[in-house]
Design a protein around this nucleic acid. Sequence first.
DNA 1: ACTGGCACTCGTTACAGTCGAGTGCCAGGA
DNA 2: TCCTGGCACTCGACTGTAACGAGTGCCAGT
Lengths: 340, 340
Amino acid sequence: MGLDDRKLAVLRAIVEDYVSTQEPVGSKALVERHQLGVSPATVRNDMAVLEEEGYIRQPHTSAGRVPTDRGYRLFVDRLSRVKPLSPAERRAIERFLVGAVDLDDVVHRTVRLLAQLTRQVAVVQYPSLARSSVRHLELVPISTTRLMLVMIADTGRVEQRLVELPGPVPADDVTDLRRLINEKLTNARLSETPPLVQALVEEVPPGLRPTMTTLASVLLETLVERHEERIALAGTANLTRGGLLDFQGSLRPILEALEEEVVLLKLIGETEPSTTRVLIGDENEFDNLRAASVVSTGYGPGTTILGGLGVLGPTRMDYPGNIATVRAVARYVGELLAQN
Amino acid sequence: MGLDDRKLAVLRAIVEDYVSTQEPVGSKALVERHQLGVSPATVRNDMAVLEEEGYIRQPHTSAGRVPTDRGYRLFVDRLSRVKPLSPAERRAIERFLVGAVDLDDVVHRTVRLLAQLTRQVAVVQYPSLARSSVRHLELVPISTTRLMLVMIADTGRVEQRLVELPGPVPADDVTDLRRLINEKLTNARLSETPPLVQALVEEVPPGLRPTMTTLASVLLETLVERHEERIALAGTANLTRGGLLDFQGSLRPILEALEEEVVLLKLIGETEPSTTRVLIGDENEFDNLRAASVVSTGYGPGTTILGGLGVLGPTRMDYPGNIATVRAVARYVGELLAQN
DNA sequence: ACTGGCACTCGTTACAGTCGAGTGCCAGGA
DNA sequence: TCCTGGCACTCGACTGTAACGAGTGCCAGT
């Protein structure tokens, strides 16, 4: 449909103004604040077309225009100019992330940083187990019939499980098992371990067979089935900015969605390498989040993606700014993990 | 002063009605809904006294009465009757907590359970490190100059830290160190470890002295200084119940407070053994939480207190019910940890 | 193709009036 | 002495009306 350059410029101006003022924007205000070079009347005609095409709408007959989800989509795809981070922001990122002592610390600092910079709700997924490798497996005897299985991933993530053995196992055997398991599994990708674990059961001396079988089932559970991805969240208080105009007056559905890890994972976890994904309002598959937008991307050392991170806020958000920030933070975190 | 039995009964009735209806309660409605045996006029006189004493107040001249923080306090201390849990609730608790596979799981299930039963925001502190003992310390070689130190506490909590060694250390020495450290520290209370760690440095053969010194400082940091208590939260969506009448219209300060772990720890972490603490509105030391109440208690196996748990909600909350629930959940969690 | 002008819409605000829940007080009765 | 019924009063909530103004759509003119 005929959307000439000026009409696109008008849409861009409407989005930018509405995002910053939070109020429906009218034709007069528009020509005053942007150099469009035409009169309000002309702008009104353009607006009428934009409305017909579904990019903007009028809350009330006598009010200005507001972008629709479709309008934001067009804005994000074709109209927004990249907004480079300010030096202050770059400095903030570095200052914030330097000095993290362990993985938990990195994730916590990252999520807080994101929330602070974007003034939105920030979500960071812990490095996904499925995509990492085994650095070391440790068997710690608790009693003669109980072991603590500790798995250390190359990302620094640590998982542990208590194992009830079928019968008493002497310390020497535990040592043997530990050696055997580490020989076979160290450096293996977690997603590739199941056949290796199966093979382990076969290789073990007959006396240890029952013990190894028990261990194997726990191993599989810990390494693979238990995809319990962890998530960190920060900045929920930012949801209350903008009075209750955003989110049509009720934070309830948003808060509910934020409590479901499954939902958050779907939102930020399914990212293709080096893309920044933007989900606007309706595009979201969860009813509770129809009034929200999500900007997310993957992070990891180099080109590997270990997890996702992103921000969630009202559809009326600063897309260019948030996209830039999310990307920058993801890159810094990736570098940090690479040093590990 | 003279608060005779009937005046107290009136106060109790006001609290109960206000909590359930969320609306200022008038004298007429009171006599209708409770068997007070007197006329509205009499109740009005009593109300006048209660107001003078600061237990209730009138939002507007022509409205009913609402309890003040002081009124709730009196209610909690002297007027509320214990509300036994319903069988359904008991069943819910058991069903919910059975089947937890590890500590993380226990804590997560507990906090969700609490939120669901009380319909408030639930907070659960992870078993405090300071109060637990060392079950095992593991040294995992990552490279010749790097170790992963893993500490397993008797509560099932696991902490790990990466250690950069001053120089390469052969595997045999690592084994020796592991044995030595475990000999001295296993079963020690974390709060009592510092002198033991110091002693360790002296006992080690001179060749391992520098390595042990490095290890010691990380150990101290991990075991003692790094009091990084962890917290789980659930049910924030419950804050939006009761429209925006509670919390004087703005969730902001509450949400901000809930993001500060320090604040939460102060709220639920400082509990004396087997007491249930109730903080009502003003009594709270944080300005952000002036409009909220907190019911909290400690939990742990037997009489030891390993951490705190509780709920946070509007001052207008069902104190007897929440107190009963918090206590019951704490007891069940304690039993669960004892089995460990 | 753009612009100025004009009639129109409709949400917002202000104001006045009514209604009613709830109160305080008082005089009378157990 | 304590309780009760009655009564005047207060004041927030709601309703209806009117004025205002931001913003629009349309049209005729350049």
